[in-house]
């Protein structure tokens, strides 16, 4: 079993693409579509990895990330941050907020797969 991945993303097409890529490799993929209750969703579903979009309706991805890092339950959870803005400032924000890995959209599928594998392996 490769692991349970939760994709927090508001673009249905992107969720579908990531789901396809990861489930083909044996991951179980879940999704959550808005920022307001994303942190609760993470705690409730307890995934092995979270793919978190930086710009979500209702709440910033960085905020959610910070909250998860402060919670002992999720402090060590591997989180892959995705951003569509791609400025260095965003990378800094992500690192400071505690992202395990940071990726700029558009990404290559192989890249995402490789990152997910690396992050799940290190915690497994």
């Amino acid at each position: 079993m490769a692991g349970h991945v939760l994709v927090v993303e508001d673009e249905p097409n992107i969720i579908e693409a990531i789901s396809f890529i990861l489930s083909r490799e044996g991951y179980r993929v879940d999704s959550h579509g808005n920022g307001v209750d994303a942190a609760e969703a993470v705690r409730a579903r307890a995934p092995d990895l979270v793919i978190l979009d930086a710009m979500l309706p209702g709440r910033s991805g960085y905020d959610i990330l910070r909250e998860l890092r402060e919670d002992p339950q999720t402090a060590a959870l591997p989180i892959l941050m995705l951003t569509a803005r791609g400025q260095t400032r965003d990378r800094d924000l992500a690192e400071r907020a505690g992202a395990s890995r940071f990726m700029t959209k558009p990404f290559s599928n192989a890249e995402v797969l490789e990152a997910v594998k690396a992050l799940t392996r290190s915690t497994a």
């Binding site: 693409a17 791609g86 558009p106």
Partner: peptide, 14 residues
């Protein structure tokens, strides 16, 4: 940037 990258992400991924 965001508005451009979002559809491009889908296009590239698919």
């Amino acid at each position: 940037s965001h508005e451009l990258r979002t559809p491009m992400t889908s296009i590239r991924a698919f």
